[in-house]
Structure formats: structure tokens, C-alpha cells
Design a binder for these strands. Structure first.
Lengths: 210, 210
DNA sequence: TCCCGTGGCAAACAGTTGTTTACTGAATCC
DNA sequence: GGATTCAGTAAACAACTGTTTGCCACGGGA
């Protein structure tokens, strides 16, 4: 396995990356049931099966590991958002597709989503800031996509950006709602999220048209 | 001071309540810079100036203390929400008043707001559930107020409830945005929040009217 | 082939943690 | 006013924490 990294990086760096990833994976798993500021370095190395001191070969802090986890977690989300934004369809249809995409993402990467929701306002400054910065980039991207749609003609940049912010916040809210939901509650959550988006989209179409 | 508690409770219980409150206050202060799951019992008692074992006279756990903090924190928010809902005015005006009320609340009780935002998705199950339950009650209350307005005629209960949920989520988002904002950013945040509410209100007025 | 760079290790460090124990002294009850 | 309840104490417990030190083994360039 991973013969490609073997070829391009050499055994040495490949091994290093491997244990680094193992540390990230172990941390992410442990973070399902606690928050970053209470996660110990020894706890992580113990799960990986590596000496405590080895941790420092990869991260200075747990905070630094946290920031790395932010990139990993929001990276996958970023891909999903791009995919949704790329589809140009009828407004009614794109809503259901979006909600479905979010639900699928949460089902596929629950630990990532939980981590972001938990640490977005968590106790580690560096991680909070990393998440905020990344979500702001999402907002900009959504804003750009919205501005390109015909519905947004005559809108100020500021108004487009505030709508984008509303969408991004709603996305995060919906994702974390899916997280804590039992399978039979999922339908109801998707339903509510869809109606909320429809209401927002309705407000959008009438924005300063009256 | 507090002669009333003296009179009704006796010196004994009054003293107990006093140190209990001191524990809550100390914890809330410490939680400005870390999250509950990393807050130690000794840390709290040390600030209060009391022996570690004294903690157990008031709480079984840090989790139990956390639940008590939820009641305290959301209690004050509850008062504010009721006040806003009580005013029956023109839609345009109530929006600005609401945003102003939220801003004032955050300025007055920053630690409470931070605690709720942080622990809503935090690492302590009992606290998460307490917050979720309380926010759901807020949602019900908002829904009842919305249903009583003429704009909501012909709306299903479910639709009213989803709109209420949107408002509550938006309130929490806005509050935590105010939290991290520098004084000069406050205006911009209030502005954006106001516009978002206006757009939602616009969508509300056109809901299934077309 | 030899040598350097380096990822990982074992051990020891001083601090800290939650929890239990037996206790004291003052408010309360009868 | 004597007995009792009980909030708070001091001390000890084993278990854990992050960090430093010197060391080894081995991959990669010369």
C-alpha cells in the first residue's frame, strides 16, 4: 500500500508521515468524546503505540496538532461545498441537493464535523482562529457563486456577503444537527433545513424588489 | 448585605449558598479561557480559597457544576428573550431593537454567553443536553409568539416551529459573533445581523403567499 | 562502504490531578 | 443547654500529566 508515497518521498519521510497521520487519526478519534483542551499528549501517543517524546517530532503542542486537524477537517468540507456550488440548476432543486450533500458528508466524516463544531468556539485560541479563517474563506467562495447568479443583479457586494454568511452559518448548524440525530430523526432535520433554506431563498428573491 | 437570604434561610444555608455561588463564579471566570472538560475541581476551589474536598458538599462532579451554570447562563438570556417578544411593534422596528438587545446582553454577560457558545457542542454530554433542552424551550416560546402574529395566519405549526428555530439559531450565532468582536467591529456585526433578519422576515411575508 | 541525519525510545523529572479519610467547630433543634 | 447536624479542613493516596535527557538503529547521500 501507499506505493506512490514510497516512490516520491522515500521510506524515511513516508514513515514519518505515516505516524504523523496516525497521531492525527488517534486524536480525532479521542476528540469524539472530549474537547481539545482536555486532550493529553500522552493519551494520543498511547493509542498510537508510540513513546510520548515521539510526539514532539511532529508537533510542538496539542494546539498545533489541532490546527492540522482543522485543515484536514475543513478540507473535505471544502470539496463538498465546491461540488454543490458548481452545479447550476433550478433554485428549488439545488436546495434539496445541498441538504442531501450535507447529510452525506456528516454520515461519511462524523468525527471531522464534530471536531469543527466543538472547537469552533472551543478553548484553544489558535484552533478557533484557524476555523474562523477557513469558514470566512468558504463565505467568500459562496458569495462569489451567489453574485454570479441572475437573482443577485443589483445587489451590493455587502448584501451578497451577508447572504453568504447566512448560508455558511446555516450549513454548520445543519451539519451539527445531523450529528446528534438518531437515524429516524434525520428525515425531520433534513426537512426543516430544506424549508429554512426555501424561506431564505424566498426572501432573497424579494430583496429590495419591492 | 443579603439580609433577605439571612432572614428566610438562616445563617447556615445562607453561608452554604454563598460558597456555592463563589464556586460557580470562579468556574465561570476560569471558563473564559478554557473549556469545561479541562477545568479541574482543584483549580476552582483554589480560586475560591476553599479546600478541594469542600467542592463535594455542593457538586458531585464538574459536570454537575456545569449544568448549574447552564441554568444560570440561560436564565438571564431567557429574561431578555421574553422582554423582546413582549413588545408588539412594527416588524421593521422590532428587528433593530432585538439586535440591540442581543448586543447589550453580550456586553453585560460576556462570560455567560461564551460559556453557552463553547459548551453547546462541548465535551461534556450532560451539559450539552442541558443547553439543548433549554434552547428548545426558547424555540417553543418564540414559536408561540410568532404564531400569535397576523403574518402567521395559515401557517402550519411545523412551519412556525422551523422559523422559530431559524431565529434561535441566528440569535446564538449573532451573540457569539459579538463576543469575539472588537468594539469597532460591533457596528458591522449588528448591521449584518439586522439585514439577515430583514431578509428572513421578507421570506416570511411571502411564504406560500405565491 | 562509511558516515551523517533523524525518527523513535526509555527513563527520570517535578507538578498536578480526583478522591477518601477522620477531624473540628459552629449553627440548629428540642 | 445539651445533643446533633453538617460545611469546611488537613493530610495522604495512587495515578496521571508535559517536558527533558541521552541513546540507539537505520535510511540515504557521499
Amino acid at each position: 500500500m501507499s506505493s506512490s508515497t514510497h516512490a516520491t518521498l522515500g521510506v524515511r519521510q513516508a514513515q514519518k508521515l505515516k505516524t504523523r497521520q496516525a497521531l492525527l487519526d488517534a486524536a480525532l478519534r479521542l476528540l469524539e468524546e472530549q474537547s481539545l483542551s482536555s486532550l493529553g499528549l500522552r493519551e494520543v501517543t498511547r493509542v498510537v503505540g508510540v513513546a510520548p517524546a515521539a510526539f514532539y517530532r511532529h508537533f510542538r503542542d496539542m494546539a498545533e496538532l489541532g490546527v492540522a486537524l482543522v485543515e484536514e477537517s475543513l478540507g473535505s468540507l471544502h470539496v463538498m461545498i465546491r461540488a454543490v456550488l458548481a452545479e447550476q440548476q433550478e433554485a428549488e432543486e439545488v436546495i434539496d441537493r445541498s441538504v442531501e450533500a450535507v447529510a452525506g458528508h456528516v454520515r461519511r466524516h462524523p468525527a471531522h464535523v464534530r471536531f469543527v463544531a466543538r472547537e469552533r468556539h472551543g478553548g484553544v485560541r489558535a484552533v478557533r482562529e484557524a476555523i474562523a479563517a477557513e469558514l470566512e474563506r468558504f463565505g467568500d467562495e459562496v458569495a462569489a457563486a451567489l453574485a454570479a447568479q441572475e437573482v443577485s443583479q443589483g445587489w451590493s457586494d455587502e448584501d451578497v456577503r451577508m447572504l453568504a454568511g447566512l448560508y455558511v452559518d446555516h450549513l454548520v448548524m445543519t451539519a451539527s444537527a445531523f450529528l446528534e440525530a438518531s437515524p429516524e430523526e434525520e428525515r425531520a432535520i433534513a426537512d426543516t433545513a430544506g424549508r429554512q433554506l426555501r424561506l431564505i431563498s424566498l426572501g432573497r428573491r424579494h430583496w429590495r424588489a419591492a
